[in-house]
Amino acid sequence: MIKVAVVEDDQKCREQILSFLNKYGESKKIEIEVTEYADGKEIIENYLPCYHVIFLDIEMPVLDGMKAARMIRQKDAQVVIVFITNVVRYAVKGYEVGALDFILKPLKYEAFSLKMNRIVRMADRPSEKSIVISSRNGMYRIPVSQLIYVEVVGHQVLYHTTEQEISVSGSLKEAEALLLENGFEKCNSCYLVNLRHVKGIRDNYVLVGKEQLQISRARKKGFMQAVTDYIGSL
């Protein structure tokens, strides 16, 4: 099954995309589940990272597609975004937010079908490992490769990624359950480090990303062994 969101303020255009998706699904014998939104504001409210692809109109009255895409990318780095527009120069800007492609109005089924072929191929690929976490600001899907380290401060767990810092309530033990089998190791009781981001070890500190994190005496032997094993597996 492919899960699709269609975000388009023009009802006729939205209905046309739905008919194209139905036609494509029937011709390819693919089950396609579609959710409709009439504006960018609707999809970003309580956004859940559950879609394979989002068809997103660029020009909408309340929240335009470009702004909506930036907000979606903060929570979902993997969803495929395809812009819908009647102005090519707007579509080109879509690459700034990692858009896969764009569809020009007026829509033609032949061109739409070709783009769907590409989308289906991407959906069938083994996806990069990711984790989904919940915070008071919503749910986030984080590719494991983009997560640099996890830090516990009081009753808050901070997920430091290459793009942002996400704070959730919980414990480091909960993060360990998600990550220890994905190349992460504790350097002390406060930090869980992604070994692929380790740049070096100096005295009792590990250099990870742009930070120096302390390695505790109790954890040093095990941490050093984990780093050695990780490097040896490359």
Rank of each mutant, 00 (worst) to 15 (best):
28 K>F: 11
134 S>R: 01
21 L>R: 12
55 F>M: 07
225 Q>E: 11
159 Y>W: 14
75 K>S: 06
4 V>T: 03
175 A>G: 03
100 L>M: 04
139 M>F: 03
145 S>E: 03
212 Q>C: 02
162 T>I: 11
86 N>W: 11
30 I>M: 08
143 P>Q: 02
19 S>A: 12
86 N>S: 08
49 P>I: 01
55 F>V: 04
9 D>M: 01
52 H>Y: 10
19 S>P: 01
153 V>I: 09
6 V>K: 00
201 I>R: 10
192 L>N: 11
63 L>C: 10
9 D>L: 06
52 H>E: 02
84 I>W: 10
170 G>Y: 09
61 P>V: 04
177 A>N: 15
54 I>C: 05
27 S>G: 08
19 S>T: 14
184 F>T: 02
179 L>S: 07
90 Y>R: 04
129 K>N: 04
211 E>R: 14
171 S>Q: 14
146 Q>I: 05
167 S>N: 03
126 P>R: 07
94 G>I: 03
103 I>W: 08
73 R>N: 00
18 L>Q: 09
68 A>N: 13
23 K>N: 12
211 E>F: 15
60 M>E: 05
88 V>M: 08
77 A>Q: 07
6 V>H: 01
72 I>G: 03
154 G>M: 09
41 K>R: 11
198 V>C: 14
188 N>V: 07
75 K>Q: 06
217 R>L: 00
67 K>E: 00
57 D>P: 15
55 F>P: 00
152 V>P: 04
99 A>G: 05
64 D>R: 15
108 K>E: 07
83 F>V: 06
161 T>L: 06
36 E>A: 08
78 Q>V: 11
32 I>P: 06
30 I>T: 07
188 N>E: 00
